[in-house]
Design a protein around this nucleic acid. Structure first.
Lengths: 151, 151
DNA sequence: GTCCGTTTCATTGTACACGATTATCTTGAG
DNA sequence: CTCAAGATAATCGTGTACAATGAAACGGAC
């Protein structure tokens, strides 16, 4: 008799559901700016690091160009970023924030910050959970693809 | 001066990344069975609760029919489940496991279990993190949609 | 029994996520 | 200078997510 695997005992399912709740949270919090969560973290990375290539943005977000290219085309269409091929290395596409994005920064940060207060989670607990979830992430990414048992 | 929001200080980003790592983990672990993670948790729910309507499956997974219908069509095509409209209430579609799915249960559970051991996370820690992530989920879902500040 | 609101599922459209392939450019070897 | 190798983006195909809409069936009020 093999021990049953039940949904609510699974850490993966807890994380899966929390991530969906966060999506809903940011859908609400970002609605005034017509931004999705992946678009928001793309802007966050650009606010933090300044102009970067698509490759570099992908490294900060752990996303590849297949995901980022269409996402960034939408950000460009909506006037948040501009993309132009680097003159030094024409393989690169440099992504930079527009004036609109720079002007909106404080308003976005303040609004998102006030939404986060609704969560009502003390900073100490927030930080502890963050570091523990990060540990889970690290444990998972430490597994080499060829370590998985064969059938 | 508004306090900057940086990616790596965000709990949402930690959860977002952990969820992606889990996707990768299950992509590897479930590859022998040609199942995706959402398909796997659908089967988990059916192993746990037996035959259910689409609606009931959706309640256990917190997914709607727009997500489940195409997912289940693939599960049906691959021979894991069968779907048939209920004769008692013809609005309902009852989803049940095929003999193939019942026969494969132990093998799937054992294989996934041995993959989880690669994660190398003590049970006590696993459980604590799960309950803390669940608390985050609950704090987020407690926020009413009309509580978000206006702009 | 008819009407009307609700429930249930399916469909459509938008938006990621990611593997695989392709196109283009840069660079270095000869 | 030319060409092959490698890097970088873009493109394509599949699979979720989810909101909004539609259609069919149910159930209660009258």
């Amino acid at each position: 008799m093999v021990k049953p695997i039940t949904l609510n005992e699974q850490l993966c399912f807890a994380i899966y559901k929390a991530q969906k709740q966060y999506n809903h949270f940011y859908a609400q919090a970002l609605a005034p700016f017509k931004l999705t969560y992946p678009q928001y973290i793309t802007l966050l990375s650009l606010y933090e690091h300044g102009t970067m290539s698509v490759k570099q943005v992908g490294q900060t977000l752990e996303l590849d160009s297949g995901t980022l290219t269409p996402l960034m085309k939408r950000l460009e269409k909506d006037g948040w970023i501009s993309r132009k091929r680097s003159s030094e290395d024409e393989r690169r596409v440099d992504v930079s924030l527009t004036q609109k994005a720079l002007d909106a920064r404080d308003e976005i940060f303040e609004h998102v910050g006030s939404c986060m207060e609704l969560m009502n989670l003390p900073q100490s607990e927030y930080d502890r959970i963050k570091s523990e979830v990060t540990r889970v992430d690290e444990h998972l990414s430490a597994i080499a693809d060829d370590a998985y048992p064969q059938v």
